[in-house]
């Protein structure tokens, strides 16, 4: 005889979206970031996979991805690093005085490029949001994320792919 309630529970558990770590690994995230840096920041601009503490004052940019996998991809670095990144990205086109708007724009575009390529690895089709910039990205459980810590010109930055799993948490609690 079939235990209906048990079958239902199994179905719910089976239907849970896979954890983000099952969909994309740290090496892939790092490779995507490296490609973005080489093409946008500069041909000699390498990212070194070494964890280091972020400074107290940070700036983050992130893009949301909505689809079979929903979440966001964020870059976080120190404010001084963000300014240096902006100058490097703009290169000879950088204005003499880099304004905050330029920094937000450049960091947002880096998140957009990294996020777009992360999206291509994750299950689709999905929609990529416009980049947002702030002191911290939206909140999310560390366990539902893939996080890569890198050094650029000796300064720390992180790339984080964060699942948004409200339904998963609700269903597990049943």
């Amino acid at each position: 005889m079939t235990d209906v309630s048990d079958a239902g529970l199994r179905r719910r558990v089976t239907d849970l979206p896979p954890a983000v770590a099952e969909l994309i690994d740290e090496a892939t995230v790092q490779e995507i970031a490296e490609q973005a840096w080489l093409a946008l920041v500069g041909e000699d601009e390498v990212l070194v996979p070494l964890p280091a503490p972020l400074p107290a004052e940070t700036l983050s940019s992130w893009v949301e991805i909505v689809g079979p996998w929903t979440g966001w991809v964020a870059l976080t670095c120190g404010r001084d690093t963000a300014l240096d990144l902006t100058r490097a990205l703009l290169g000879e086109h950088a204005p003499e005085e880099v304004e905050q708007e330029d920094v937000h724009d450049a960091l947002g575009e880096l998140a957009n490029v990294v996020g777009g390529n992360v999206k291509a690895v994750l299950p689709g089709p999905s929609v990529l949001g416009l980049p947002e910039v702030g002191t911290t990205p939206p909140s999310g459980r560390e366990a539902d994320s893939v996080r890569v810590a890198l050094l650029w010109r000796g300064s720390p930055l992180t790339v984080r792919v964060q699942s948004v799993l409200a339904e998963r948490e609700n269903e597990v609690s049943l």
Partner: peptide
């Protein structure tokens, strides 16, 4: 492009 940086590049 909506990114000023990308337009410049």
């Amino acid at each position: 492009d909506d990114s000023r940086a990308m337009r410049r590049i």
